[in-house]
Nucleic acid binder design. Structure first.
Lengths: 345, 345
DNA sequence: TTGTACGCGTTATCAA
DNA sequence: TTGATAACGCGTACAA
């Protein structure tokens, strides 16, 4: 068997076009086009005939031709750091829901948390003439902007740098306040924070610190990198020297999983001895033992909001940045301090 | 400000085309095309001039026009049940890696574990003239095939129904055998299985059962649906009537999380009293307490394999279905039976 | 080495 | 209500 080239395979049986349908239904291609765009008036009988033929030939208007003449692609570019992180998955789910409704598709690119590949990914998407773009957790900022010809707009979800016009964000500071208030409300007074690099963690800490200040308290802090291992490590630091900590606010659920593990290993009961509040309310939060109280980031809603923003920009409308309020999801890792509980931890 | 229509916005400042570049560099569009496809010979000086102008105008050849004339889109369609499940995310990562290398992009669609939306998603992708397609966990089979004109090929990753020509799969049966051997090797003799609907779980059970038969053992079984809650429930059923179970093989990690929880709640130590083996080795496996021993599904490698298969098909080559061997990842949830351990569980 | 001209599949304008 | 026909942006025979 001779080796075939790519093009020979694909063009071997080029898909049936508008001409074919027109010819076999005895009308002009213009009429077929009209039938499929049901814009202008078409004689019901003619329409019927055309639709029938199209069905028989299994004809589908080609987006390629249509987009060429229209100057749009019905594609929306989406750049995500990675897809293995469930929170991003939820956002994508929200985006897809809205876009699907409008008949648009998602052109996906991964940035791997890397500024350079963010940029090249954007260029890649642009070559496909995407009508708009959404980028999650972008590190690109105003001084190093995303490429955007033709008045194309990028909507940024939780960008690292502020200042870009189209944004969907979580009020991270409010999230930090929620965590603090939960712990203070439970009577905890020896609080700690586990942070990570980046603006989001900083904002979360700022809110947390503000509430503690109001209560006249200080807090211990340790730094991680959002990984579970760093959570174990951070908890270790916080607890050494017999430090008396009775509540830990962790800037990410994965790190919180590490904190829980470190507490288990030291035989400290959660929440009786130490309460723990995570952040994101990722899927793992409710799988941990005990189930983790966490500050919920409405990822799916943020996705739909980003998609809607993108659509509005596409329509030439003006938009405002959107900030979502966080929400505390109370589970088993927070509760009143006690030594009388029947819990194992 | 007057409301603008979509088209008015996008065409307002239509991107610079090949004509513009040709005119300003004093050559024909054919030459510009040649420069950008470096196919034919072009005078170095001319090439330089064109490239310069292109740079100045920030010209990028439009995929729309290029694809139209070439009959390909450099797009690969990808249909996934959802994106929030980390295993899929890993696969997508693998796919993207291979495709990016070839300059191809991913057109993403979600099937929501639904046969109908699988089909419509495929049609959607086809309208964009994707050059090939990958579908994960498809429920479509030979009798209800995927739409595929123009000799387009779909590569199926872990399809529910067998018989489709281009497949990438895990040897689930071997996975079941691995789980059984691990438990038997630890001296466990009172085994149980928690299954779920579908072929994958059935295959896993078949391998598990085969090894037990060889050892002259029977096992208890309970049925779940891959959710954590169903794992809790299933474990409850297995343990009622004081049933003596000392090892549980669970067809999915999420369910295994539920099984662990149920064991904790009954005060049964893992792995001392009961050993647990999960399946998939999803990201959560190593976050559970204790860390879950699991049968690893090399998701990323399966993704790259699917993408490479797709590329080979695109090139007109013949291919064989690929089956990956599973691997047991031993963590804390399996170990010798003992009552002397210092573990809390 | 370069240019002319056609075609890719569609929409949209204009005339019929 | 319909049909010619001119775009859309590009690649590529073929001719020069």
């Amino acid at each position: 068997m001779p080796e075939l080239t790519v093009s020979s395979v694909l063009t071997a049986e080029r898909s049936v076009g508008i001409r074919e349908v027109a010819r076999l239904s005895g009308v002009s291609i213009a009429t077929v086009s009209r039938v499929f765009n049901d814009a202008a008036a078409v004689n019901p009988e003619t329409r019927e005939r055309v639709l029938e033929q199209a069905q028989a030939l299994n004809y589908q208007p080609s987006s390629l031709g249509r987009n060429l003449v229209r100057g749009r692609s019905e594609l929306l570019g989406l750049i995500v750091p990675n897809v293995a992180f469930p929170l991003y998955g939820e956002m994508i789910g929200g985006i897809e829901e809205v876009l699907g409704r409008e008949g648009m598709s998602i052109l996906l690119a991964l940035s791997h948390d890397n500024v350079d590949s963010e940029f090249t990914a954007a260029q890649h998407l642009l070559r496909h003439a995407v009508d708009g773009g959404i980028i999650i957790n972008s590190r690109l900022g105003l001084n190093a902007p995303l490429p955007a010809p033709r008045g194309l707009n990028w909507v940024q979800v939780a960008p690292e740098h502020t200042g870009t016009p189209h944004r969907v964000e979580l009020d991270n500071e409010a999230g930090g306040r929620l965590a603090a208030l939960e712990m203070l409300g439970l009577g905890r007074r020896r609080l700690a924070f586990v942070g990570a690099p980046g603006r989001e963690s900083a904002d979360r800490e700022r809110g947390f610190a503000a509430e503690l200040r109001r209560a006249g308290l200080i807090y211990r802090r340790a730094q991680g990198d959002y990984s579970e291992a760093s959570g174990v490590q951070a908890a270790g630091e916080l607890l050494e020297h017999n430090a008396a900590v009775d509540a830990v606010f962790v800037a990410g659920d994965l790190m919180a999983a590490g904190v829980l593990r470190a507490l288990h290993q030291r035989g400290l009961r959660v929440p009786e001895a130490v309460a723990v509040v995570g952040f994101d309310d990722a899927a793992i939060a409710s799988l941990l033992y005990p189930r983790l109280t966490s500050i919920r980031q409405p990822a799916r809603a943020m996705g739909t909001a980003a998609a809607e923003l993108s659509l509005r920009l596409l329509g030439g409308h003006r938009t405002e940045p959107i900030t979502f309020p966080p929400e505390l999801v109370r589970r088993e890792s927070t509760g009143p301090p006690s030594r009388l509980s029947a819990r194992h931890f």
